[in-house]
Structures are given as C-alpha cells and as structure tokens.
Amino acid sequence: MKTTLGLLVLAMLWGPVPVSHAQDGTSIMKKVLNKANWKDMKAKVTLTITSASGSKRIRKIDMMSRKRTDDESDMLMRFTEPADVRGTAFLIIEHATRDDDRYLYLPALRRIKRIASSGKGGNFMSSDFTYYDIGKPKLADWKYRLVKSVFVDGIDCYIIEARPASPELAKDIGYQKIFHWVDKSNYTIIHSEYYDRLGKKWKILTVPGLKKINGVWFQTHLVMKDIQAHRSSEFEFTDIKVNVGIPASTFTKRALSQWH
C-alpha cells in the first residue's frame, strides 16, 4: 500500500511547476502529480461527514507527518473530538516494498491495535474520500486525455479526462472516468468530477480553500460530494506548519499511547 500515506499530505501538496507548451493530458497530469519539496509538517484537521438526512459525524484530529525516505512517509493522527474517542491515535508507517503498518491506540482499553490495510477503493475513515481519492495516483494507472481549455470563475483551466488503465482498477475504485479541472497557473486541481461504472455522475470534488504557506500551495479545504447518495465529506486544515523538525520518535508505537 504505497499510496496510503499519500493520504492528506500529498493531496495538499500537489505543488506548482513551471509551464511548458503543447502539452497532452499525461504530461499535464505529470506536472500536477509532481511532489513538492517538504520534510515534515503538522496541522489541525477537521473531518466532517454529512449524510442525506443531515446527520453529521465530526472528527477533530491533530496530524503530524514526515518523510522517512524519498518514497516513504510516516503519519500520526491523534483524535481530539468527540470526547469519547479523545486520545485515540492512528499511526501509519509507509513501506515502499510491502503493506503499510497501521496502528490504532485505544485509551479506554490502554491498548494498541494493528489494523490490516484495506483496498484502494476503501473509504478513508468512513468518509466519501477513498484512499485512492486522497492518495497520490500512479500515473500509469490512468489514461489521460486533454479535453479542452476553459475559463472557470476567471481561472484558466485544462479539463483532463482520466480513465482507469485496467478493468481491475476500474472495479477496485468503482470509477468509469474522472474529469479534473487543472489551474494552468499553478497546476493544482481545483475541481474534479467522478463518474460511476454506469457512466452516471457520482462524486464532485471542490477545493474552496487554497493557501500558499512557506512557498507551498496547500489545499486547505476539500469537499467531496456524493451526489447519488447525497452525502458529503470535508477536510479542513488549520494551523499548518511545514518543516518544523518533528522528532522521529513521534512516529513509533511507544509514542502512540503518550498524550502530549
């Protein structure tokens, strides 16, 4: 599960790259997916899931992440709300060559639990974001096509169509195709539309919050709407700090159970 850790971090850090000319869909997406340069970061995250009936599940999380190697990252998420899960903590240690390690600490039981990796199409923390949606997609998994250029709210955008390269992937993630609106000025995705395997529009991603922090563009507010089930999920990031020098000992099982 290489992509797992991509999680929020990579979604946020799809940074800007230089503009070139006469591009096709694949070369545009290559630029979009190009990693930004960062060592570690921390932020406060609010995950809100809203159902069709208006029922909400709100989770508040303190998040920390670092790059362990070029291809591997670690991430710790500590839940602060609601009160009954306060102190539970989720640790992900990414591995390039095998499944990631995932651990959850449960304070009521004073116990750390290893959690098995789930599929890419699996929903992240029961939200409308799948691990795939928030992870960094592998370029080779998709066939990209530049549909056209448009102006949306005064922003010059490419519309890129992405189709799964293999039927297995299509079945796993449940998408027939995705359209990405890519801002030409900074190569960030500002809007995406996901189609289910029947070809019906299924989910819409919007990015109401985009901020430049320490020279890096962050998607600070992501909204994924499931227009079929009428549910939606939002990630909101605040207090983002980059390259603050988080010690490696933070990302260990031992540290999981210690409340800061």
Binding site: F79, D84, V85, P107, A108, L109, A116, S118
Partner: peptide
C-alpha cells in the same frame, strides 16, 4: 480496571471504522 462504558463503545466503533468499510 474500571472504564467508562460509553468510551469503550465509542472506541470499539472507532476501531471498526478504521478497519471496516462505512
């Protein structure tokens, strides 16, 4: 040890949310 039952339930559910599908 004696623990708050509601916390226990909430954390079981949290654990399941992380591992299972919604």
């Amino acid at each position: 040890v004696r623990v708050n039952g509601k916390d226990l339930v909430a954390q079981y559910l949290q654990l399941y949310e992380m591992s299972g599908s919604p």
